[in-house]
């Protein structure tokens, strides 16, 4: 399981509100909460009172013959109806603001797959598992999924939207605080069986977490300019991080054990037998091709299920991955 930031709870019911929308949702929440409490008391106080007062003291008590009152039926039909109409509009308001992103919002594409999130910025920068956004600027997320339905949920932002394969859905937010927040998947998407030994690798629905890092505008620009990568760390180390964050480890083991895909242990220089009968020697070109066009050379005995990473990984990231894979002796 990825380490996820704690959800900040600052009231009995709700997490701390850290987006512009959260305030609106919370107002609606409070209105419906107090309405419910009032109605609950309205129902339960008489119930409790009647249950005590009208206990049977002796057999054969004569009970009231009043069996209806049109007036009172009309009253308790129309008053709740009026309250409900109001509640509908109370609920509608924050929702409309949640659904219509301001023009000029920073547009980020979100791709969900079992069991990780990746975020693609307009300049092509791709960040896996970590959504970096500027504070105080509207950010519009366009979601899709490559396998099953997932759902993007940030409790402190009060936003949620399913990521559906074959469909684009969207939502937007504007963060109001500089901090790290947890993204949760709320649409059930299964579990790997068995789980990878390494517990840091997401293994199922409840591990499909990501982090939203809200930075101030300057820091965000800096981050984006470097493509989200820290060039000072050695490539192999960056590759290791990429290997984990892109979910490669879900299918490729590092210890030689068999999984959905071939193991990465002793990969470099190995002779692989392909599905078409030919063999290939694993070198940089083969690795690059397999990452970008997995369908090109399918290793015998493994299903062709790997998605392409073309357009998601930058060349420098592919290089980093290759550097990491070369070290897996």
């Amino acid at each position: 399981m990825m380490t996820a930031p704690k959800i900040d709870i600052d009231s009995f019911w709700l997490p701390k509100a850290t987006s512009t929308l959260a305030g609106q949702v919370d107002s609606a929440w409070n209105i419906v909460l107090y309405t419910c409490i009032v109605f609950f008391l309205l129902l339960m106080v008489p119930t409790g009172y009647f249950l005590m007062k009208y206990r049977r003291k002796k057999e054969g008590e004569v009970t009231s013959a009043i069996d209806h009152s049109t007036t009172i039926e009309v009253v308790w039909t129309t008053i709740p109806l009026g309250v409900l109409v109001v509640l509908f509009f109370v609920g509608l308001t924050p929702w409309v603001s949640a659904k219509v992103a301001p023009a000029g919002a920073l547009e980020i594409n979100v791709t969900a797959k079992k069991w990780n999130w990746s975020f693609q910025y307009p300049d092509g920068t791709v960040s896996a598992g970590k959504l970096i956004v500027p504070k105080g600027k509207p950010v519009k997320l366009t979601l899709s999924s490559v396998d099953v339905i997932h759902s993007f949920y940030v409790p402190e932002f009060r936003i949620k939207q399913d990521a559906v394969p074959g469909l684009y859905t969207s939502l937007w937010f504007e963060a109001t605080e500089i901090k790290d927040l947890t993204v949760l998947c709320t649409e059930y998407c299964g579990n790997a069986d068995p789980c990878p030994k390494d517990e840091s690798i997401p293994c199922g629905h409840s591990d499909m977490l990501a982090t939203v890092s809200v930075l101030d505008e300057t820091k965000f620009k800096e981050w984006l300019e470097t493509g989200g990568e820290d060039k000072s760390t050695p490539p192999a180390e960056r590759g290791k991080a990429l290997f984990a964050s892109w979910g490669c480890a879900t299918c490729h083991s590092l210890d030689g054990s068999k999984a959905t895909g071939p193991t990465m242990k002793g990969l470099f220089g190995r002779k692989e037998e392909l599905a078409d009968g030919s063999t290939v020697s694993v070198d940089e070109n083969y690795l690059r091709e397999s990452i970008l066009v997995p369908t090109a050379k399918q290793v015998k005995g493994f299903p062709l299920v790997m998605p392409t990473f073309q357009g998601q990984l930058k060349p420098s990231q592919v290089d980093a991955l290759i550097a990491f894979l070369k070290e897996q002796k």
């Binding site: 609920g91 308001t93 924050p94 949620k160």
Partner: peptide, 20 residues
């Protein structure tokens, strides 16, 4: 309680938060 809390789920704005 069950009926009244349904209001939270039927309201668009609050459902977005508590859905699923």
């Amino acid at each position: 309680i069950g009926g009244l809390t349904g209001l939270f789920c039927g309201m668009l704005g609050t459902d977005m938060h508590i859905h699923d």
